[in-house]
């Protein structure tokens, strides 16, 4: 298992003929192995940019992304072997909002993509794929082309595809954003189970306050212009979700209080952006 560190990351986009945009300013963040951190913020706060930097699709203007292998210690040190992220790699899996499945492949081929490109033995991959499809409840759909599946089922394929590669860190960019409200709630339960079962380190980007509260052990609220971390919460709900029903948790006074607090914070940020735009 690896810990993930975002070290003083800043990102400045320069559009030709425009002013430089400070998408991210001095972001510092650390995820211990097995932690699930949800990231919330108004549109334009740079949360997707941050995820793309961690995934290695963008290189930051300054700062570094580090992975620390805690199972292998550096000689004469307490910390594990540290490596810097330079580009995309199989150690960081992605789950996108939608449309990132390979529609020319069947469900099982999609899930097997990672092991296949890595040249893993077919027998072993088959076993992994079969187990994962069972876990996400799609074992009868293995041979189907993915485009015949509903939106919720497609996102379950995307989760399975990511897990088949056994990444150190999973990066989710609004994975449930395109689903209808009911499917979304069901998927949240599934994600919670998968997370506990696999003990993966996860960054979850979402625009749903409820989802961020329910799934995150920690919740980070980002603010725009420049994109920065505004506030951080430690949350009990993800742990409760393993024993209690999601509906009960979401209806609890504690949950509602937090939800309203965060909603009004984001609301104010949005107001400020609008006001500034009008002025």
């Amino acid at each position: 298992m690896k810990a993930l560190t975002v070290e003083d990351v800043s990102m400045i986009f320069t559009v030709p003929g425009g002013e430089p945009v400070h998408a991210l300013q001095n972001i510092n963040l650390r995820l211990e192995p097995g932690e699930l951190v949800s990231v919330l913020g108004p549109s334009g706060c740079g949360k997707t940019t941050l995820l793309n930097i961690v995934a290695g699709f963008l290189s930051p203007t300054s700062g570094r992304i580090l992975l620390e292998d805690q199972e292998h210690k550096e000689p004469d040190a307490d910390v594990g072997v540290i490596s810097e992220v330079k580009g995309p790699g199989a150690d960081r899996g992605m789950v996108f909002q939608q449309g990132a499945l390979f529609e020319w492949m069947s469900v099982e081929k999609n899930v097997a993509f990672g092991p296949d490109v890595a040249g893993k033995p077919k027998k072993q991959t088959q076993e992994v794929v079969k187990n994962l499809l069972e876990t996400v409840g799609l074992k009868d759909f293995a041979k189907k082309p993915v485009y015949q599946l509903s939106g919720g089922m497609q996102q379950r394929v995307a989760l399975a595809r990511c897990l088949a590669n056994d990444p150190e860190v999973i990066l989710m960019d609004e994975p449930l954003g395109a689903l209808d409200a009911l499917t979304r709630e069901k998927m949240q339960g599934l994600m919670l189970q998968l997370w506990k079962k696999t003990a993966k380190t996860i960054i979850l980007i979402t625009h749903s306050v409820e989802e961020a509260l329910f799934l995150g052990e920690r919740l980070i609220v980002m603010a725009p212009r420049p994109g920065r971390i505004e506030k951080e919460y430690r949350l009990p709900f993800a742990d409760q979700g393993l024993t209690q029903s999601p509906r009960d948790i979401k209806a609890s006074p504690e949950f509602i209080e937090k939800r309203e607090e965060i909603l009004s914070m984001i609301w104010e940020m949005e107001e400020e952006i609008m006001g500034r735009a009008e002025a």
Binding site: A55, G56, F57, G87, P88, G89, A90, R92, G93, M94, F96, Q97, G99, A100, L101, F102, F113, G114, V117, A118, R161, C162, N165, P167, L171
Partner: peptide, 19 residues
């Protein structure tokens, strides 16, 4: 997003091209 997905699943440039 498909290309990004393939790279973060460990595909090489050639594999991204062919697959």
């Amino acid at each position: 997003s498909k290309v990004h997905a393939a790279y973060s699943l460990g595909a090489s440039k050639l594999q991204v091209l062919t697959r």
